[in-house]
Design a protein around this nucleic acid. Structure first.
Lengths: 199, 199
DNA sequence: GTCTATATCCAGATAGAC
DNA sequence: GTCTATCTGGATATAGAC
């Protein structure tokens, strides 16, 4: 087949190594905490000296930034691959459950994406854009369920965030808040559709 | 007046210096972030070399621990000095507002007390006991309002925590979630007292 | 692309003189 | 109780040989 795009083996190998470095960085974050990642250790994981990592990433923050983008891309993929059910409430519930599970299954990732406690680190505009799409998707599910105000969205995010936070902080590995989530969504929906609503 | 307890001037001065060090540590936390505190800088703030701080605290973590205790003690003081109103719902609301304000007014403190992202740091049992009393007081206010189940308490803490978290992360210095708090409490109370309740 | 070597700087903590 | 001096170890990052 003439006309096949030529494969750039060099670029492929480079991308592969970058992915390998990121995977090792996640593993380190799980074991030592997010701020416990050192370039020494990270290099050792992939069989390099710390200095050689600079061939793949410009700085340590660039690695955090790639992790931030990767995490958000995964969340976006999970939420957008959800089926669109007839019942918009069911869609809302499914999205909430996906988000909650995503947060709880990896506290280090949760810290990087949502708590942002690394001094000096700010995600790049490109990475941040992915996070924006995640929020867009959530807003769309809220709209489908008839919740269109800023107040409604802010209440929703506070609720979900609070659940994830408490589960991670006070019952890691457990289900103490997870099993209350559906009930909390009932509460939320009833309130927003109830009388005297300001929504 | 015979029988006055003798003042221990040495101990007083020591306690004063400890307090001064803690105040400087808070100031540094505000400026550089919680994990940005270094003993060098901290010593410089109080006119000492870093090494001299070891006369007052056993380690850097001991300083964090004292800050943790101090923060919780302040929160406990604020919540227990609230008047006990006739209306238990009003008490609940007042407690929530105090908590929310406390969190939002000092993000570094919020991080130390509630997010616990400093690698390796665990509060001592004594410090942790103060935090326990804060939770006890909140539980008592919930009981007074007729909410006695674990589920109710867990839903309450998730809600409050989520509000504080969102306010700090997404609208620092603003009031975007603060002005929704009362409405959220309405939602919470209506749900817990509503029909088909599991509480 | 990876290495050695190095620069630069910082951290927390200890010993011992005064 | 504070100091000087020092220990030990860590960090991120750069230069240049191969």
């Amino acid at each position: 087949m003439l006309g096949n795009p030529p494969r750039d083996r060099k670029a492929e190998r480079r991308a592969g190594t970058r992915a390998e470095i990121l995977a090792a960085a996640w593993a380190l974050a799980h074991e030592q905490g997010l701020s416990g990642i050192s370039l020494r250790d990270l290099g050792a994981r992939v069989g390099m000296r710390a200095q050689s990592l600079y061939s793949y990433f410009d700085s340590k923050f660039a690695i955090y930034d790639a992790m931030f983008a990767e995490g958000n891309a995964l969340l976006l993929e999970r939420t957008s691959s959800l089926p669109s059910p007839r019942d918009p409430d069911a869609g809302l519930r499914a999205g909430a459950r996906v988000f909650f599970t995503f947060c709880v299954e990896d506290p280090a990732r949760y810290q990087l994406l949502f708590q942002r406690t690394i001094p000096g680190f700010e995600p790049s505009a490109e990475s941040y854009a992915i996070a924006g799409k995640v929020l867009e998707a959530a807003t769309a599910r809220l709209h489908a369920a008839g919740i269109t105000t800023d107040r409604g969205r802010d209440l929703w995010t506070a609720l979900l965030n609070g659940f994830a936070d408490q589960q991670i902080a006070n019952d890691p590995g457990g289900d103490r808040w997870g099993r209350l989530l559906d009930d909390a969504i009932d509460m939320f929906l009833a309130h927003l559709r109830g009388p005297g609503g300001q929504y």
